[in-house]
Amino acid sequence: MSFTNDQLERYSRHIILKEVGVKGQKKLLKSKVLIIGTGGLGAPAAMFLAAAGVGTIGLVDSDNVELSNLQRQIIHLTKDVGKPKVVSGQETINEMNPDVNVVTYQEWVSSANIIGIIKDQDYDFIIDGTDNFPAKFLINDACVLTEKPFSHAGIIRFHGQTMTYVPGQGPCYRCIFKNPPPPDAVPTCKQAGVLGVMGGIIGTIQATEAIKYVLGIGELLTGQLLTYDALDMDFRKIKLPLVKDCPVCGESAKIKELIDYEGAVCELKQN
């Protein structure tokens, strides 16, 4: 594969970087990243990965664009209200970068479909941009069981957090948070609100992790939880332990099959 003149120009700022170069840009163009949730986190992540020239981007979301999404889900435009989010996302990416092949899955992830979606394009890296704990635990367990790296993140109000799981290189989400909280126990963005830029900051960090993983450069957030407080403008990296008796990634893991947890009442339409 050799670059066209347009590609040389489009990716010139990458190619100039010693850590990326021609080889790195080719790796990006051949890479496949799955983004689950095309919302506050997934929208900016998808846009930066598309701009970076990630060759295949999978978008998973069953929802349609709502007016209340537009305060933060920057991949969707006012004219997209009512359209499936994956279609709106695909259109934005296609207009941004013709090098990117967008694969859409207009459905919610569940134990019945997630492995099939991950294997559909044999994705290299998965971004969890979902807003609910059943999905977050499902994505974690599916990635552990299929040995796929993924980026976890959550945002609420003025807070965000993210960590990266790479098989065999550090703890998974379940090592730290054993089980999902009961439905409605922990507020979601819809109930608690979120500053629109939080998804931009944390989702862009998730995209950065995906790019670094594909390129094989730098230090990932494996074994570390990055927390961000926008009011104090405080970033902290908390070192996380590997939990030997983790029920899914531990030495004698009990979880061998995916679990569909019950969602919060206000999220029932997703499940």
Partner: peptide, 12 residues
Amino acid sequence: VEFLYFMGGGAQ
């Protein structure tokens, strides 16, 4: 000591 909190949010 670290207190680690559940944080959902992201899509909706």
